[in-house]
Write a protein that binds this DNA or RNA. Structure first.
Lengths: 198, 198
DNA sequence: GCATAGTTTCACGCGTTTCTGAAACTTGGT
DNA sequence: ACCAAGTTTCAGAAACGCGTGAAACTATGC
């Protein structure tokens, strides 16, 4: 379990004094770092979380430039990060007439974001796993029925792969349910629960 | 040492020929690779997934040795991996009388495993995030009320941080519900659903 | 058409993470 | 007590992912 990922940045700074630009509010620093951390746990890059957060917390679209200085990143990093965020549909480029800068704003519907990620990434993973498990099961049948090498082993193995399949399929259902509800309805929040056996 | 006997042939294809030990069934290879992949997505190491899977698919406890040769790993890697898996409580060392080897077996209740990971890792992350968000909110109040620098920015920011907090708290509830149900009841599987607004 | 400002792309380097190989350690047998 | 077989630990090597900096590209204004 790679615990790492931490790096809980203490307010105390060594001489490398990365003073985070006067325009970055304390609250923004705290929140963007927290979300950055969380993003890492979720398999994204830290800077994606930090950039998105600043945009989300801003009352107006920001220029790449502003992000660069507030987060102390290189222009390249900002550009690539924005690109990735845009590909995930969680950040949008907006134009302003009479201004040749590119501005960016965050998708402000959290549920839209989440359902998108679940749909495009988590779901794909689960589908892949299901497929692989089915393949494994097929390979087992093929192998077991001709060479009766180890019946107990084959039997247990079939059982267990089927368990895994069941779990994976449940995962798929859960994701589908979440995606579905997230899309149409944001107010089910406090009503979350699981079916209880009757 | 004791591999021979089996793979008498082996026309030797590419020299990088990672032949995966005759004792590793095709089905085992497929499934353990798939689970290994999934584990990576979940933030664990690939080999943890592969090792756990072999144990889970086995009808009897295995020795570190057997894992080493089936997965083509060094003894050190196997040992460390088993250690980590044991710390997560998903693999157990078992002893057999009159046999001085260490044997290992997988926790066979998938839900026990999952609820444990959710409880110890995911939940901790969410709690941390909630805490950070609350700190951010506090920092914002502190800052905003004395220096009335940018009222709109402060207002929006407060709103958005509160949104994030709401989401994080929902996440916590969902995790708690999952953990709770997973612990006491394995048969709610097909009954999963979300509350629908009435 | 050229100069200027802003943005994107990309090869490289750096810091991490993961694995290996070998040495140290344990345990049971003789 | 010593040996043999197995296991764990650890320093270093390889692999990997990420961000930088500079060059290429684009668009605007003169």
């Amino acid at each position: 379990m790679q615990e790492s990922a931490f790096d809980a940045r203490a307010p105390a700074e060594s001489e490398s004094e990365q003073l985070p630009s006067p325009e970055l509010w304390e609250s923004e620093r705290i929140v963007s770092d927290a979300i950055g951390r969380l993003m890492v746990v979720w398999g994204f890059k830290r800077n994606m979380g930090r950039v998105w957060t600043l945009l989300y917390l801003s009352d107006e679209p920001l220029r790449a430039d502003a992000l660069r200085e507030r987060l102390q990143l290189s222009a390249g990093a900002v550009s690539m990060t924005l690109g990735e965020l845009a590909r995930w549909g969680v950040v949008r480029k907006v134009f302003r007439q009479g201004d040749r800068h590119d501005y960016y704003e965050a998708e402000s519907s959290l549920w839209k974001m989440i359902s998108r990620v679940l749909r495009e990434r988590e779901r794909a993973e689960v589908l892949l796993a299901i497929e692989a498990l089915e393949d494994g099961l097929a390979a087992l049948e093929r192998f077991a029925e001709q060479a009766v090498s180890a019946p107990a082993r084959a039997r247990i193995q079939r059982e267990r792969i089927e368990q895994l399949l069941e779990l994976a399929r449940l995962g798929r259902s859960m994701l589908d349910a979440l995606i579905d509800h997230a899309r149409m309805d944001v107010s089910w929040l406090p009503r979350f629960r699981l079916g209880r056996r009757t």
